[in-house]
Design a protein around this nucleic acid. Structure first.
Lengths: 116, 116
DNA sequence: TTGACACATTCAAATCTGTCGATATATAAC
DNA sequence: GTTATATATCGACAGATTTGAATGTGTCAA
């Protein structure tokens, strides 16, 4: 089991997919800490016990898919986007000529701004 | 468990990742059928029993990641590239601004790409 | 300091998964 | 026809995974 296997294992549970999708929502906010999502928020979302949620986020953090940050008593979580970019690149290699480029890149800071 | 969960479950085993990577190799050929990969080739590759290989390819086919085709006594397998493109797009949505576009598109892509 | 809260960890039960031997099925070769 | 080959399926077992109750640890509030 190498690193990539752990990555896919981390994604192979419905509860963990739901966690990632929730963390991805731009309006995902913790009841307590402003604009953050903490563990107990996920508990409510998933309808699972606190230990179960703790287990799932641990798997996601260990796989590098989610980042954890202590905020006082709380632990706030967010998606580790570069990690998903990495994974996406791996899967793209199997897509061959069916790879679609739907670029939604930030148009921020073009190197040579034309008029402004 | 929806379709996406089955997709990730299918990818969550090292043996199945090895199968996909082997099928992806452009020079992957079956000992018996020219330019194809059959089940017994995978058996040798993985060092697993025939029933175990049969199980893994079944999971991959059911997830739509691999296509199976009967060739007489043999069953030949290949990567279902559009399915990977689909999965890649899903994961790209989490990559945000870290999404890299490393486009290696065929410059003269045929309308109907033949073999994978 | 005491109590409440957020989260982690331990442990055990239930369930799921991977594996292989045995067997079935289907096709090819003879 | 018979026999050999390729793969699928069944049955059983070992190990992994998920889950929650109990408990531990650390932090904030009063």
């Amino acid at each position: 089991m190498d690193e990539r296997d752990h990555l896919f294992k981390a994604l192979s549970d419905p509860a963990r997919i739901r966690i990632i999708e929730f963390l991805h929502r731009p309006d995902a906010t913790c009841c307590t800490v402003e604009d953050r999502v903490c563990a107990s928020d996920l508990e409510g979302l998933l309808g699972l016990s606190q230990p179960a949620v703790s287990h799932h986020v641990k798997v996601l953090v260990q796989a590098g898919l989610v980042l954890a940050e202590k905020c006082g008593r709380f632990t706030c979580y967010r998606v580790n986007r570069p990690r998903f970019a990495e994974l996406q690149r791996y899967l793209a290699s199997f897509a061959g000529e069916f790879l679609e480029i739907s670029v939604a890149r930030r148009s921020a800071a073009p190197r040579r701004p034309s008029a402004n």
